[in-house]
Design a protein around this nucleic acid. Sequence first.
DNA 1: GTACATGCAAATCCTTTGCTTTGCG
DNA 2: CGCAAAGCAAAGGATTTGCATGTAC
Lengths: 137, 137
Amino acid sequence: MASRLEKKCKECGLKMTGPRKVILRVLSKSGDHPDVEQLCRRVRKCDPGIGVATVYRTVRLFEEKGIVNKHTFGDGRARFEETGGEHHDHLIDLKSGKIIEFTSREIEKLQEAIARKHGYKLVGHKLDLYCVLRKKK
Amino acid sequence: MASRLEKKCKECGLKMTGPRKVILRVLSKSGDHPDVEQLCRRVRKCDPGIGVATVYRTVRLFEEKGIVNKHTFGDGRARFEETGGEHHDHLIDLKSGKIIEFTSREIEKLQEAIARKHGYKLVGHKLDLYCVLRKKK
DNA sequence: GTACATGCAAATCCTTTGCTTTGCG
DNA sequence: CGCAAAGCAAAGGATTTGCATGTAC
């Protein structure tokens, strides 16, 4: 039963190995933005033999193929999420580290306009909002 | 002849040492977004004795004091620029690596509105546009 | 069968730290 | 002078890579 993501991999000409299937499943089930260490832990619950190097190699490969998105928020490590149908940006709660996803068609239109104004075509963007809870007074 | 930045440092209670003066001068003269390695090279043209550790410690300190801004674009390393009077975002030319700065009051207003809608107060943001030159046809 | 994927460990890259020496205030 | 800063080298953390072995197609 090849999942949607597995199909996508095949289309990209990727060999569907055991570790890759597990990593794909974990990614698609993760509602958050796990880093490699977290991915490893989750992946190893399915198959304890999977090594870090494989996870690194796999997410990198997936990123090149557009299957996952890589993020680098403030801290030093990379985080990953499945490339969903919808693009979205991130609001980061600086106190708790919680991440909220959002989209803004208006902002995106403005971005395109800015790129065009400088003679460029927008091919991607990254918008992170760093926030703290509003004090209710 | 204490420069504007040096005054700012004194206000923050920072001891004005030789290395710090040099690093400040290099930062204020840099129109680009140098990483630590580049900073080191530039700084050592003035004073070859300055060590990497000092550069790292200094930029980190400056960042905490709000004297410089730290950026992490796609690649693994941090880049720095003097905190100018005006905040700005970045348009990155994916082919050449060139970085263009821009601001958009409209986008920023929208960002604040989004944060508010989620119950947050916006304290900072990061917006990078990844672009390629527009083909003229 | 063959080219590509994996596991492991060593290697790399960027950044931080420990400790002694130096120097600003 | 006293305490913070600098230099150097060693430590650390994340990610990559070399190599022998395993495996999807």
